[in-house]
Design a binder for these strands. Sequence first.
DNA 1: TCGACAGTTAGCTAACTATCAAAATGAGTC
DNA 2: GACTCATTTTGATAGTTAGCTAACTGTCGA
Lengths: 107, 107
Amino acid sequence: MSSVFKALSDPTRRRVLQLLRGGPMTAGDLAQHFDVSKPTMSAHFAVLKEADLVHTERSGKSITYYLKLSVLEEALMGFVHTFGLGSTAEVTSAPVPPGNRKKATST
Amino acid sequence: MSSVFKALSDPTRRRVLQLLRGGPMTAGDLAQHFDVSKPTMSAHFAVLKEADLVHTERSGKSITYYLKLSVLEEALMGFVHTFGLGSTAEVTSAPVPPGNRKKATST
DNA sequence: TCGACAGTTAGCTAACTATCAAAATGAGTC
DNA sequence: GACTCATTTTGATAGTTAGCTAACTGTCGA
């Protein structure tokens, strides 16, 4: 769970996932979209693999990356549901449960 | 966006948010639930504030923390929707969109 | 087997994060 | 004003992360 959020906390990795959402891509194709060295991209891929958000397959010389949407979904939606989100539309503060001190909501 | 995921990547901070989901709490009350020093907790609070996931209010001597559910929701659900999640139930791999190299799915 | 290509690993630096103890701040109380 | 309590800030240390270059591994084609 932590590893998923950690993976998601980097913009480069989020973009990789979004690219992968459009379909599998090789490491090289992915790397082309970014302005960092290949070893750096490889490290990002390793973080994504560690979080189990992608899996890989060799296709000859290249290695193709596949998004594991189900893992992303389980982690994210699981957390979302824990918070009773996903159906709420405009919650401003807390749900104001019983035993709450009333404060002047200046928002 | 990154700051939200970064905040979420720590179990202590996720726990804090879950506690706050049950209603506002003071820093001290929150700290009681964890086995770390108060400065450490304060640092975690700062990360949550930085991500705009909580806001604070002084109530006399104590400082009360409030969960900003809306921010959490926007960040999470925004991302979830970006990935077309939230309605899918059992996606195993990628949605296999058009323009896809076909590979031997060994799974 | 050799050379080219695709990725990863190794080794490093700089920057960041988590943690603590101790000191400082802010807000009530006497 | 001085005292006390709750929380934050400061300063130090240990561990982690992102990034690089250089070197290595594995695969293909000749």
